[in-house]
């Protein structure tokens, strides 16, 4: 009998599902986090998971454009702006 559980396809789909869930968790934590520096790092987790997803979907073009923008440029822009404003998100009534 042929083994149907451990074929490359099922493994790839399982990993895709796991990465999707990881990116979901990263996005949720980035939204609710009050410390903006930590939020940037959570969104970096999400970016890494997405880069891997695009890789597994055989789209190296997208990986090549996504990784510099989402890991190299976007955290830099946000960190520059946090440095110029405030690190902790307030309630607005202080």
């Amino acid at each position: 009998m042929r083994n149907v559980i451990a074929t490359p396809e099922t493994l790839t789909y399982g990993v895709l599902a796991l990465l999707g869930l990881i990116s979901l968790v990263g996005t949720y934590l980035a939204i609710v986090e009050k410390d903006l520096l930590k939020a940037v790092l959570f969104s970096a987790i999400q970016s890494t998971a997405y880069a891997f997803i695009f890789y597994l979907l055989m789209a190296p073009d997208i990986v090549l454009v996504y990784v510099p923008v989402a890991v190299g440029l976007y955290p830099a822009i946000v960190l520059f702006l946090i440095k110029k404003t405030e690190r902790f998100e307030g309630d607005g009534n202080e």
């Binding site: 190296p60 090549l64 440029l73």
Partner: peptide, 20 residues
């Protein structure tokens, strides 16, 4: 795989890194 935008976004990290 790759292209102008990909290469440009990659190259832009070099001056940014030097700046930081």
């Amino acid at each position: 795989p790759g292209g102008g935008f990909q290469g440009g976004a990659t190259a832009a990290v070099a001056p940014l890194l030097v700046m930081v």
